[in-house]
Amino acid sequence: MVSADVIRDALDNYGDAVYKLCLIMLKNHADAADAAQETFITYMDKSPLFTGAEKEKAWLMQVAANKCRDMLRMRSRRNTVSDDILENYAENTEEYGIVEALTELPDKYRIVMILHYIEGYKTEEIAGMIGKTVSAVKMRLSKGRTMLRETYRKEYM
């Protein structure tokens, strides 16, 4: 089991990225906090070894994405509604609209958009993280871009 210091470092370095992913995926503070917490507890349990900081972050993002997916699946079974909380973070209407439009994309498109455009991962890296082929990731990014623009135009312009 990794030490508390390792967890503290990981929280300091990647806590924001993990939480951001969870919040955009789940649109709910409590669920995002739970998913982030489970991610770091999993890290403690599994104590994976990494060859570099980037690998560590990628692993955490991957686990967080899976936690979110599980919670969304559970939520769809329970018909739970998410909160509209992202406006607290936006500086202006445009920013709010863009993030809001992003959260309205289907999960599979949203996750690749977050990993590519917000976290800066390459398509090959995302393919490895979500277990799809590079061409599938490129297709999802392409479709995600189109849907994001359409949603934004339709609802916020």
Binding site: Y19, K20, I24, A90
Partner: peptide, 8 residues
């Protein structure tokens, strides 16, 4: 747009 989202 998402830069301001940080872990509380």
């Amino acid at each position: 747009s998402t830069d301001r989202i940080t872990m509380p």
